[in-house]
Design a protein around this nucleic acid. Structure first.
Lengths: 139, 139
DNA sequence: CCTTGACCTGGAGCGCACTCCAGGTCCCAT
DNA sequence: ATGGGACCTGGAGTGCGCTCCAGGTCAAGG
């Protein structure tokens, strides 16, 4: 249990945990998705628990194609404190709407592609039947 | 009925129909997604019914994030004739698998985002309740 | 004859999200 | 003290998918 309550995480640990490269992690920081991260005396970054939590959400939103710029706006709201919760909510709800639409679109196209696959399968089946027929005639 | 059987369509018509720009249409042709399209004596493009059909599928596959390079491969198979149907089938099936996975991922993230929205809504509700309570005390 | 509008060409440019690199520091183990 | 590994910096480069542009042609209408 205590292992899970560590105060700090190294860049390598974070990169592995979120399947990001160190470069991407630094890029996110530069882009303002993360606050200026803490440092060890060596100068190496040390991520805190709340960085991890925010990264979790960031990952989730990026995976659903929220652009970096929008993500930065959201991260700024988080940094500005609890009074921005209504605005954060608005961002998330708007994103969810987009996502719902996108999923609906993908499902729709999925159907069309399936249909095309079935069509091709039908062509192949017919072709196979014809070949069988020919063989029957010949033999 | 006869209107729908026209032999040729102008670039403008096609662009509108598929919600693509003329630039994109030309880009697709250069990229090998479409064969070298027919021309009017003036040099203007004239799209045939089978261009339209292929574009339909291309649009569907692009909308589901098939990369241009893969689309070009597919288009080449189409140009190579009916004997490539098994390979086309493979491309489509592999793409459908990717798409299924992608949809599953999005739905998963959708749930996480919804959860976060609910969390924020909870915070706001609690805050509203506290305010009401304070007012009650004061009044 | 002149304008307008649709389209043509080749090639440059753009926005996004990384990704890579050179050259450096720090710390630990052999 | 030497080597290796993890990490640092600023800045350049990459890949993708368009998107824009200059300068032109062509056909129809006034």
């Amino acid at each position: 249990m205590l292992e899970h309550m560590r105060d700090y995480y190294t860049p390598g640990e974070i990169a592995e945990r979120f399947d990001l490269t160190l470069d991407t992690l630094r890029y996110y920081e530069k882009a303002g998705l993360l606050r200026r991260v803490d440092r060890a005396p060596s100068g190496h970054r040390r991520y805190r628990t709340d960085d991890v939590e925010l990264l979790h959400l960031i990952r989730c939103l990026r995976d659903t194609d929220m652009p970096i710029a929008r993500l930065r706006e959201f991260a700024e709201l988080v940094r500005d404190g609890d009074h921005t919760i209504p605005e954060r909510l608005e961002v998330l709800q708007e994103h969810k709407n987009r996502l719902d639409d996108r999923i609906a679109e993908l499902v729709d196209r999925q159907g069309a592609i399936e249909h095309k696959i079935d069509y091709y399968l039908g062509v192949l089946a017919e072709r196979a039947a014809e070949t069988a027929h020919t063989l029957k005639d010949v033999n």
